[in-house]
Design a protein around this nucleic acid. Sequence first.
DNA 1: TTCGAAAATGTCACCGGTGTCAATCCTTAT
DNA 2: ATAAGGATTGACACCGGTGACATTTTCGAA
Lengths: 359, 359
Amino acid sequence: MSHSPDRHDQTAASGSGEGQSRGKPTINDVARLAKVSKKTVSRVINESPFVKQKTRDAIKAVIAELGFTPDPQARALARRKSFLIGLVYDNPSPQYVVNIQRGILDALEGTDFQLVLHPCDRTKPDHVARVRAFVQQHKPFGLILPPSVSEDELLARTLDEAEVDYVRIASVQLDSPSRMIRTLDGEGAAAAGRHLAELGHRQIAHIHGPLSFRSTHERRAGFERALHEAGLSLQPDMAVEGGYTFEGGVTAAEQLLNQPSPPQAIFAGNDEMATGAYVAVRRAGFRIPEDISIVGFDDTPIAGRLWPALTTVRLPIREMGSAAARLLLATANGAVARQLVTFEPEIVVRGSTATPHKA
Amino acid sequence: MSHSPDRHDQTAASGSGEGQSRGKPTINDVARLAKVSKKTVSRVINESPFVKQKTRDAIKAVIAELGFTPDPQARALARRKSFLIGLVYDNPSPQYVVNIQRGILDALEGTDFQLVLHPCDRTKPDHVARVRAFVQQHKPFGLILPPSVSEDELLARTLDEAEVDYVRIASVQLDSPSRMIRTLDGEGAAAAGRHLAELGHRQIAHIHGPLSFRSTHERRAGFERALHEAGLSLQPDMAVEGGYTFEGGVTAAEQLLNQPSPPQAIFAGNDEMATGAYVAVRRAGFRIPEDISIVGFDDTPIAGRLWPALTTVRLPIREMGSAAARLLLATANGAVARQLVTFEPEIVVRGSTATPHKA
DNA sequence: TTCGAAAATGTCACCGGTGTCAATCCTTAT
DNA sequence: ATAAGGATTGACACCGGTGACATTTTCGAA
């Protein structure tokens, strides 16, 4: 150990063994070799249109030759804006989260941006403050807000104030086309309702998400609309909340099954709850789909892993994540989206729904 | 639009509306108010032990008063090391990944570090190069490598060369205690074997992961050991590969069921494959657990969502992620782990296993 | 009391880029 | 040929910290 008094001051000495001729090439190296100022190199890196073609080509050649890549940290410092895309999420369904992540990563592939995770517990009173602290400290390039954080207006206003770009993914239009991706949950839920009605079910139940989620209302409304169009209706005692969780789904389904006249079919607001319904239904001794049909929502991987496979409404979650990331980059790049990016879910019929059994 | 010739040069002008009295406080503000040099403030921030207590207190007071937080980008630039922890993963099971993420985030909570995702497709020939590029560009503070990337020696050597810290999570000790978290997969698999043997099963099958994964061998070896100890053995035609995926599990189970004497019990190398086995077993008309018992591995959420719930071997994945992150931070901080951090899985008996049915 | 080493703090360049604004280079109109 | 004005390019400070090393304190031993 050295005798230097300052532990941190000495760490550098213990660093590399001093081997590589010189570290990674910097903008200075490029500038020197190309015989231009670093500022001009900077312009080329940032694709400024105000560089003569000839100069640009020469610089690009040097960049390629050296294998130069700009240092994200240095750029971030100078621009006061990092190359991080923050995913701020608070979704009960892990599958949803993974898929969103994948979608974003798809879009970020090949760019300089990195995805950082920022879970956000909305039940904590300081959740907005935490996100703000994150934003102020790390100065992310932008944020992506899937449901349900996307619906948090207080958070949105706070982010506006902090001047960060963000894209919200939601089932209702709560922002301009440049700042959101919309999913037509109502249409998907309606398709679920039509499907069950067409199969001939009359006594149909719905397990919905928390009332604080906009998607809960969108889905329920679309579902009810379809039932009405089929001359049916959702009885008050046939609508139960399941909190978008597996356990909630179990409890909600048990409640439905305990009604004097249990449902012939259940539409769950997401796959997690539908999975819970499977368990409750079987525990009660019913068969799926012979005795009770079940429909889910989201088409997360578990839907295809159940037995029988779950009929559900597919939301292209990964594509949505990807679209959100692309929109974010485009918007920050100065583009203005005129048209709202919209995703329409589609029903995927599998083995959990069938014609009602003759009782 | 302005008439400035340089588009990028002007972007600043379009920036903030110039409102807040002054931006976030910097280290200079702190130094001025505390009447010390910025270097001393820097020392306090970095918890250097070479600052007089009195000075430290005074500076801390100013920091608190100003609400100062050091700028991660500036620090990263000066240190040549960012505050990002990279999760480099390539795991077929999404649940595994989410849980690892959560564990890491648990450990990172309250620190200055952020988690960035870096999926890595090991089937691509340039996967090592990509990771290296990521490391060289973004200079992450450290990486966490869960299986199976943890087993990639070429990658490990490349990271050594790039001088990045990393922690590997693996089922065999392939590195020093400072650089890895070990899981005793063999013990867990043995418990699964004992469990099935104790129930009275004789004809027991195993669906294992890819042979290129170390965990595949660990699990299989532990399982076989337990069978031997019970006076049983794993017949060659009772061991099939399922690729650690759901689909692979389905196929593998079908293959087992088509044998002249199908198994009474199946131990799958992970829950995904066990889930696949559920489907194949039912498709073939058998009941679980009456006709065939099934045991999984990992205890991912799906295990509890199946019907009947899956008996499986629990790996505390989230805790492992957390431990890996803590180890990484500690190691980078100069600590040297003497003792290997080890996690022993435990069997969780649920509804998918039972005494064999009298044929 | 005095001296020397350890402890504490400061100085200053530099990390690798970008913003501002001035300087220089081309064109084209006259 | 020449000035005007846009197109290019460059000079230089600065973003907010840290590293290396110098300087100043402090304190126990002689």
